[in-house]
């Protein structure tokens, strides 16, 4: 390969079973143009490498304290009292002053316990491909492959396109997990190298969409139509968020829209909101409002599923 572009990745997971067919290796790219308050991976939103603080791992300033002296900006200070719920009582933990922290990473380099660490790492395309190829025997047996997810992978367009090309050159099945919020020119370039799009659709009401996640839905819907017209395959994923998009009206509009995409759509997945991502927010610098809501009931999900089924769609609840 003449050029080997690099991208910012925050995780690579082997044996990912929820992100497309078969056993998959999922590559999570960092950075997203959307600001969904229910985001279950808040560490994926910023494009730059950022500090993470996990109290559970901290061994306390009495035996360690290396981070306190490592920070040139004084952003790490002893916490008031013990904040740890998982460690023994009486451990003097630290607190990150997020307003002062500039994510320089000096403390994470010093932290021996991995309580302070950096979300995000630069990888070249060939490094990612080498990693994925190690799992090849498992892909073959299960009909799996590689899923590129995020964040929004199409926001790191050059890297993602090069990675998709390289994966296809190696004969691997590719899936692209996307918000759909990207210029059509980028989507069009990705199309020949993507076996399956995992496309999020949230709300057919453009104003509500914009108000909640900070971007309009129009480009997303147009991209969905474009993919369908170009012969691409899609799994549509609908997060069910209380009071944002769980009305019957919205589901009907979604159902109608998806039905019109025709055979391009292989499956529609309902992803009920859950609060499991909330604790992750505590680990990083906040960059937007956080939704803390009750998960929708099975009954509610059943009703929404029934609505979509009126449009002759195959529905799966995750």
């Amino acid at each position: 390969m003449s050029s080997d572009p690099a991208g910012t990745i925050y995780d690579i997971q082997g044996f990912s079973v929820q992100d497309g067919p078969g056993i998959r290796t999922t590559v999570f790219l960092k950075g997203c143009p959307l600001r969904c308050p229910w985001c279950h991976s808040p560490e994926s939103r910023r494009f730059d490498i950022q500090l993470s603080w996990q109290s559970r791992r901290c061994i306390g300033t009495a035996v360690c304290g290396l981070c306190l002296v490592s920070c040139p900006r004084g952003a790490i200070v002893p916490a008031e009292g013990s904040q740890s719920t998982d460690t023994e009582d009486g451990l003097q933990l630290i607190r990150v002053d997020w307003d002062t922290c500039d994510d320089c990473g000096l403390c994470a380099a010093e932290c021996p316990a991995g309580a302070l660490s950096m979300w995000g790492k630069r990888y070249t395309v060939s490094e990612v491909v080498d990693r994925a190829l190690r799992d090849r025997p498992f892909f073959e047996k299960s009909g799996g492959g590689v899923t590129i997810s995020g964040g929004e992978p199409l926001s790191q367009a050059e890297f993602t396109l090069a990675l998709l090309r390289a994966l296809k050159e190696n004969g691997l099945h590719t899936a692209l997990d996307t918000t759909g919020f990207a210029p059509w020119a980028v989507v069009e370039k990705a199309l020949p190298h993507v076996d399956l799009f995992l496309l999020d659709l949230k709300n057919m009401d453009g104003r509500a969409h914009n108000a909640a996640v900070g971007v309009p839905n129009q480009p997303i819907l147009e991209n969905a139509r474009g993919i369908a017209a170009a012969g691409g395959k899609m799994q549509i994923r609908i997060p069910v968020i209380p009071r944002f998009n769980d009305s019957g009206g919205n589901l009907r509009a979604l159902g109608k829209f998806v039905a019109e995409l025709g055979e391009a759509v292989t499956l529609v997945q309902l992803l009920p909101y859950h609060a499991l991502g909330v604790p992750k927010w505590e680990r990083i610098k906040h960059d937007g409002p956080i939704l803390e809501a009750t998960a929708p009931s099975d009954k509610k999900i059943g009703e929404l599923k029934a609505i979509l089924e009126e449009y002759s769609l195959t529905i799966q609840v995750h």
């Binding site: 079973v17 929820q18 067919p21 078969g22 498992f138 047996k141 299960s142 799966q316």
Partner: peptide
């Protein structure tokens, strides 16, 4: 969901190898 088939594929691959 399809997790069961994937677990089976995992075992089969391990045994293949």
């Amino acid at each position: 969901g399809g997790g069961k088939d994937k677990l089976i594929a995992l075992i089969k691959t391990y045994f293949d190898l």
